Amino acid sequence: MDIKEKLQISVTNIVLIGDFNPIIFQPAWLASKGLIRENEADSVNLELIHKELVRYRLDWAELEITDNRFYIQTSKEAYQEAIRDLVLGIFKTFLKETPIRALGINHLLHYQLTEKEYINLGDKLVPLNNWNEFFKDPRILHVEVLESQRLDNNNGYYRVNITPSDLLPRNGIIINLNDHYSLKNQERGTQGEIIKILEDSWDSSLTMANDISEYLWKKVQQ
C-alpha cells in the first residue's frame, strides 16, 4: 500500500514574521482588492477584529494577524495553492512596503496507521530494544529532527516532528515539516526577498514534505 492511501488530513500553513497593522486585513479589505469574493467576505466566520489582533475563518482558510505575525492555514488540500496566492496577492501587489523578516511554510500530514505500522515506525526511528532493560513494552511518542543549515542557500532551517495525531483515532500520526526561512541581513533586507522565496520555494517545500513521508513509510515496510 502506498503512503498516500494512509493520508487522512493534510494541513498547510504559512507564517510571516514582520511588522503588520492587523486591522487592515479585514475580510472587507480583501474583497475590495479582489483577493477574495464579496460573498466570501459576507459569510466569513468572524472571531475577533481588534487593532492588535484579527482572527477569522473563510470556508477554505483561517487567518490570524497580530502586529508581528501573519498566519494563514488551510486543511483542504485543494486550497494549498490558494493560501499561497492570497499571501502573494496581499504583499506582492498591495502591501509592498510591509517589513517581513521570516517565513515558515508548514506541512502537517496526518496518517492513519495500523498498530503494527505505528510500532514499527517508532522502532525504525528510535530502536525500542534500547529500552528493554527498563521497560516491557515501550512506545515512541515524539521524534524531532533539526537541520540547522538549509540545502538551498537560503538562510533558515528544517525541523521535522513526528507525533501522535490529535485528529485521528488510535495509531494516527502527524509528520510535521517546518520549512523555515529568514533574511540573512534582517536590518537591510526587504519584504520582497521573503515573498520571492515563498513564490519560488512553494513547490519544493510541498515535495520535501511528501518525500519525507514516503521515505519513512519505506522504512516501516522493511
Rank of each mutant, 00 (worst) to 15 (best):
N13W: 06
P22R: 02
I23D: 02
P27Y: 06
W29R: 07
A31F: 05
K33M: 14
K33D: 03
K33V: 01
G34L: 12
L35P: 05
I36R: 01
R37I: 05
A41T: 13
V44L: 05
L48Q: 12
L48V: 14
H50D: 15
K51D: 14
V54C: 04
L58H: 06
D59W: 03
T66R: 08
D67K: 15
R69P: 02
F70A: 02
I72P: 13
Q73L: 15
E81P: 00
A82T: 09
D85K: 12
L88D: 07
G89T: 08
L95W: 06
A102G: 12
H107C: 01
H107K: 01
L109F: 04
H110E: 15
H110P: 06
T114W: 10
T114V: 03
N120I: 10
K124Q: 14
N129T: 13
N132G: 11
E133S: 11
E133Q: 03
F134T: 06
P138S: 01
Q149S: 11
L151W: 13
L151S: 14
R159E: 08
N161D: 11
R170N: 12
I173V: 13
L177V: 05
D179I: 05
S182P: 00
R188H: 07
L198W: 07
D200V: 01
L206Y: 03
T207K: 13
N210M: 05
D211I: 06
S213M: 09
L216H: 06
L216P: 07
K218H: 13
Q221S: 03
